[in-house]
Design a protein around this nucleic acid. Structure first.
Lengths: 232, 232
DNA sequence: CAGACTTATTGATATATATCAATTATAAGA
DNA sequence: TCTTATAATTGATATATATCAATAAGTCTG
């Protein structure tokens, strides 16, 4: 356990991998935030935030992985993204309607720090660097969402499946081989298709030697081929 | 021409209908911004910002209407939204990669004020209220994009066409009857489908008496039916 | 006003993807 | 270990939507 860069040696604080937001705080500001944090752990499947409920706290992810999905009235979900260590989560309702706009559910054992939204709001009106950092973060989200929108609406199945695999490889597991902690349904929700279609498309890629699939273990053999499929 | 609330009687300034962002500025701050603005007019079809080019200025819409669309390599576009009087446009690349992430094209005669991004950046590090206002604005965009994502990926054609009509009625023309300044292709790009499919779906709604369509004039006869179709 | 061009509409057909149903594999409890 | 539940896979079929092609309507320009 390395020392906390903000606050001496705080082995249970949310800051070993802190959202960049908090790097902008003064020592005093950070200490105040740190002291009021609530650390909570979740088991796989447990819901961290439920879409539609009041936004009272933000989550800083310390350990583990969670899925963020938008629930639709008829029961279908769209999986927006995955979040892990160092990510801030739950700030979309801030200054708008103060409710959560997505459900966040643990995929592994998860450890988060809950930070009161009221406190964040207060800091944002005091500390410009922090506000600017949040704007940056928001713009990044908008860029990602716009790309996702374009990809999901205009690419065919194979391209969307390739995109999911590339997302997992590049942004999540940071390796060509990884053990999923997502079900096929989750993967399909990420690609906006049915699980049957996802499985078939995955099998095709396996049969043509681009990837190897063994239960929840995925191995990308030919990254270039995958990138090519994603282009189309 | 009413007096400018910020700056005495400035009949050509960008502030008769100002983005709420600028309401947060002090008189001095606003004057500085006002003095460096560049007012520009565009004719229908002219490109205001081109996706991929450097982000040097923001646009404040004073008059007219423009479409904001994401261009894809193969030539298909996804129409993100329409912008008109009082809207701020072009801030997505701010603090990220400093390029425009969408093309903005005039649909009518358009009058905008260009505000230097550098100046906005400077103000954001000085004025917290302005930064908070921008965060609010960004969160609203994220909510809209998430809803759009969910609607475009999970609704069938009829629902998406209904959504487009409801968007035009509620957010753009603010009336049950309106004269479009969009082509059928634009409408289709807004609903993420082909123009042929859009036309067919529109015709079905006309045939069942929910709307009336006459060239570019659209009349919503049965709003509840439209809302019902949108639900599905 | 004629001709060229763009936009809108309609129809026939192809195709991608969802749906439904059945089977197999895996995990979790008793 | 047997039993039950859950997740993954495969196949057959239906359906929504895109594609292609042809025509019609409107608009611009010399």
């Amino acid at each position: 356990m390395k020392d906390c860069i903000h606050y001496g040696n705080c082995e249970i604080c949310c800051c070993e991998k802190t959202p960049s937001l908090f790097d902008k705080l003064s020592k005093t500001e950070f200490e105040a935030l740190h002291d009021q944090r609530k650390e909570v752990v979740f088991k796989p499947g447990e819901v961290i935030f439920k879409q539609g409920t009041a936004l009272t706290h933000f989550a800083c992810f310390k350990e583990g992985m969670a899925k963020v999905y938008h629930e639709r009235p008829e029961g279908s979900n769209i999986l927006i993204n995955l979040v892990g260590s160092g990510k801030l989560c739950g700030s979309i309702g801030l200054y708008t309607d103060n409710v959560h706009h997505a459900t966040v559910q643990a995929l592994t054992d998860v450890k988060i720090c809950l930070i009161s939204a009221k406190n964040i709001e207060k800091l944002l009106t005091q500390n410009n660097d922090m506000a600017v950092d949040l704007i940056t973060n928001k713009n990044e989200s908008i860029i990602e969402l716009t790309n996702k929108l374009a990809n999901l609406t205009y690419k065919s199945m194979a391209g969307r499946v390739a995109d999911v695999l590339l997302y997992l490889q590049k942004d999540i597991y940071k390796s060509d081989s990884f053990d999923l902690n997502l079900t096929r349904q989750d993967l399909a929700d990420l690609a906006a298709m049915t699980k049957e279609s996802f499985i078939r498309s995955l099998k095709e890629m396996k049969d043509s030697g681009i990837i190897n699939v063994n239960r929840n273990q995925i191995n990308i053999i030919n990254l270039n081929a995958l990138l090519l499929i994603s282009e189309k």
